[in-house]
């Protein structure tokens, strides 16, 4: 099973996690820029964080044979702090980098005016830099937040296929599906969304435009939830090719739209060969540029 985790915060994880992920088949991932638990109070701490996402964390992942990508944005929670508003001005530098495969996480936390302003501005940046957008949906009042999110996406002019709306559940999936956006599901070790409910959603609406992630971070979470969802799919009668589609080809297709992937999309589908996804990043094969 080859796995691309499209949403995981490795900065908060240990090297044991990297080892276990590689053993489970994870060969590539996307780390979205997000809230660190402790609110930041200045632009400098954001730039240091962004530098780590395109620097140290990428290096660290490569040591474990995993290709690390990231998304860059001012997250909705901190968009509410006026001391952080200037972060929006430094984003273009980072959105130009290799391995930065989307603008994100953007969206709503508490549905404030400030959040909406930052969200709209960052959707504009996605259009300008020809990047996909990764949109976080609020944990509270998810349905209303998702509705407003989709309105703003439509107004932005960003193609729905360039947008993934994340942390969905049974209540929010259909409106995102109808809008033509990609659907992200975060599988948690608690009641928010588990692998069996995930399988039920896949059985009901199919595998198109679905991304499954662990969203593992500094909270209670499990970086192997992608692999566990793959196992649950097989148990429920999905084929190995279906699993590959959801856990590898779908994220490659979505983030490949950025033209910034640092992993070989044709990586051999066999975790046991020990094929090293970071090989392309380390420079063992010539990967030619695509668009741009």
């Amino acid at each position: 099973m080859r796995i691309f985790d499209p949403h995981i915060h490795m900065t908060s994880r240990t090297t044991d996690d990297y080892e276990a992920m590689h053993a489970a088949g994870v060969r590539a991932l996307v780390e979205p820029a997000f809230w660190l638990g402790q609110p930041r109070t200045s632009v400098g701490s954001f730039t240091d964080y962004f530098d780590a996402l395109v620097g140290w964390e990428r290096f660290r992942a490569a040591q474990f044979g995993i290709a690390h990508h990231c998304t860059i944005a001012l997250n909705p929670k901190e968009a509410n702090d006026p001391r952080c508003a200037e972060v929006l001005d430094v984003l273009p530098r980072y959105l130009a980098k290799d391995g930065v495969v989307a603008v994100g996480e953007v969206g709503f936390d508490s549905m404030t005016v400030e959040e909406e302003k930052a969200f709209v501005r960052q959707l504009e940046l996605a259009v300008e830099f020809e990047l996909p957008a990764m949109v976080h949906t609020p944990h509270r009042d998810k349905e209303q937040g998702t509705r407003r999110t989709l309105e703003l996406v439509t107004e932005s002019g960003l193609a729905p296929g360039m947008v993934v709306v994340d942390h969905l559940n049974e209540v929010t999936v259909d409106q995102v599906d109808e809008a033509g956006c990609w659907m992200g599901f975060s599988i948690y070790p608690d009641t928010k969304m588990d692998e069996h409910r995930m399988v039920a959603i896949l059985q009901r609406r199919g595998l198109d435009r679905v991304l499954v992630n662990s969203a593992a971070d500094w909270g209670r979470s499990d970086p192997l939830k992608t692999a566990k969802t793959g196992a649950a799919m097989l148990e429920a009668g999905f084929s190995a090719d279906d699993v590959d589609r959801v856990l590898w080809r779908n994220p490659i297709e979505f983030f490949g739209q950025s033209g910034r992937l640092l992993v070989d999309p044709e990586l051999p589908d066999d975790a046991s060969t020990g094929a090293d996804a970071s090989a392309t990043f380390e420079g063992n094969s010539i990967l030619r540029g695509s668009r741009d």
Partner: peptide, 25 residues
């Protein structure tokens, strides 16, 4: 500073044939 970030994806990356230990990017 504008040309630098996009240089690898617009040209290529990986070992440069003919020059030992040098990466194309």
């Amino acid at each position: 500073g504008r040309a630098f970030p996009a240089a690898a994806r617009r040209t290529g990356r990986g070992p440069l044939p003919g020059v030992d230990g040098v990466l194309l990017e």
